[in-house]
Write a protein that binds this DNA or RNA. Structure first.
Length: 435
DNA sequence: CTTAGGG
DNA sequence: CCCTAAG
């Protein structure tokens, strides 16, 4: 919680000499911090299977908070940190978290291409707007360990100058990362793009085999980037329902949203048509831009291998609902009632441009169904089953149930035989038992 | 445009 | 999630 603030203060004051630069730096560093935190959570997700959903929620929590507070970086970040540590139980065992983050970032890239594409996404963001900003994001993620003892050191070192290692561990970490990135460069050209930033050049050069180095300096052409990103996104969409994929998507989205904080203030609703020409991949990933039927007959071509084919791609742009989201939904409903879904969307989901009011309503419908199902057969076995699928804390289910009692959703319950008088007010009165 | 309902 | 009909 507070450790982050302290840590930040410590690390910045001695390191930076120009005061004017400080604000800017801190802002962007924190922003990058978010990015790399995403990566961290991501990797912890893949590394420690047990933490799947925690990672999810946490990630969402962070991002949501960030988006809301986005105006100033530091507060937003510490806020995010608070939420981060509060939302999950990691407070109690920081070691685990540390393990998840640091180990995860070491292991990244080697596991799945999800990560690589995520990274290439971020690199594109940096490259598109201001070319030199992103690269410093990489080392940052290691500094997010809660106890911040050794990591804050490495944080300092890294921030100072990556090419002047003062800490063995951190250097090791970086070199590992960069090495992986370079390995990626072979089959993931986008990742190579990340390395072409001048900040990295010097640092990278030292421990790169010359063969790879040569290849690295070849900047991919614009068209190359576009094409490959298109390919990448194309194969990403059909399997978007997987958890990890979903995570990636959401981080993508947040990345895309970020410019808002820099002062753009886009038009809130669907601002993806004109805004970022430089981010083709992100744009494609943004799911449900409008209502066109463009990509209907494209047929991904990459025949879905592992995930269920799910013929007739019903959930094209599915995004898994994370726990904070559900929480927000419940809050919103208890605030505005059932049926005021635009309000709920506007006030509780303003940060997430996906989640149309209809989606929210659908989610509520599903929640109702789930809760009632759980209620009807409140056996341990069932609950365990539910837990296996989705944790959905009992507390939340309780709230859902209460809300369901207050405003029963129209014929969501099994009793299809609505009362004879259909002319009665549909809103608010809603007596469910007419017999 | 928003909501409800069904697929 | 998507589509459509109704206010």
């Amino acid at each position: 919680m507070k450790c982050k603030r302290v840590q930040v203060g410590e690390s910045f004051v001695p390191v930076l000499k120009d005061e004017e630069m400080e604000v800017e730096h801190s802002l962007e560093e924190h922003r990058n911090g978010h990015i790399s935190m995403d990566a961290g959570s991501l990797d912890s997700h893949t590394t420690l299977n047990g933490m799947d959903d925690l990672g999810l929620e946490v990630l969402d929590g962070i991002l949501d908070d960030v988006e809301i507070n986005d105006l100033d970086g530091i507060d937003a970040f510490s806020g995010a940190c608070d939420e981060y540590f509060l939302d999950c139980d990691f407070v109690n065992n920081p070691e685990v978290l540390g393990y998840g983050l640091s180990k995860g970032s070491l292991l990244q890239n080697s596991s799945s291409e999800t990560h690589s594409s995520g990274f290439s996404g971020s690199s594109i963001v940096g490259g598109g707007s201001e070319s030199t900003k992103v690269p410093s994001a990489q080392p940052e993620c290691k500094s997010d360990s809660p106890d911040g003892t050794t990591t804050s050191e490495s944080c300092d070192a890294l921030r100072n100058n990556p090419s002047q290692p003062s800490n063995g561990d951190c250097m090791y970490a970086i070199s590992l990362d960069m090495k992986h990135l370079h390995e990626l460069n072979n089959d993931h050209p986008l990742a190579g793009g990340l390395l072409s930033f001048e900040n990295e050049k010097d640092a990278v050069e030292e421990w790169q085999p010359s063969a790879l180095r040569e290849k690295r300096f070849r900047k991919p052409t614009k068209r190359y980037i576009e094409e490959s990103s298109n390919l990448r996104s194309k194969e990403k969409i059909p399997i978007a329902a997987t958890k990890s994929k979903n995570l990636t998507l959401s981080s993508f989205d947040e990345l895309n949203v970020r410019p808002k904080a820099l002062g753009k203030i886009p038009g809130e609703k669907y601002r993806n048509e004109n805004s970022d020409v430089t981010l083709p991949a992100l744009k494609v990933c943004r799911g449900r831009p409008k209502k066109k039927k463009l990509e209907n007959d494209k047929e991904p071509l990459t025949s879905e291998s592992e995930d269920e084919p799910k013929r007739k791609d019903r959930r094209k742009n599915q995004r898994m609902w994370t726990l904070p989201e559900v929480k927000k939904l419940v809050d919103g409903i208890s605030e505005y009632g059932i049926g005021r879904w635009t309000n709920i969307k506007r006030f509780f989901f303003s940060s997430s441009s996906y989640r149309t009011p209809t989606d929210i309503r659908d989610k509520w419908r599903n929640l109702l169904r789930a809760s009632s199902a759980q209620k009807s057969s409140d056996k341990e076995a069932e609950q365990n089953d539910e837990l296996a699928l989705r944790p959905l804390p009992v507390e939340l289910v309780q709230r859902v149930r209460e809300l369901a009692k207050i405003h029963p959703y129209p014929r969501a319950r099994g009793s299809k035989k609505s009362c004879v008088s259909s002319s009665l007010g549909k809103r608010n009165l809603k007596r469910k038992r007419c017999s």
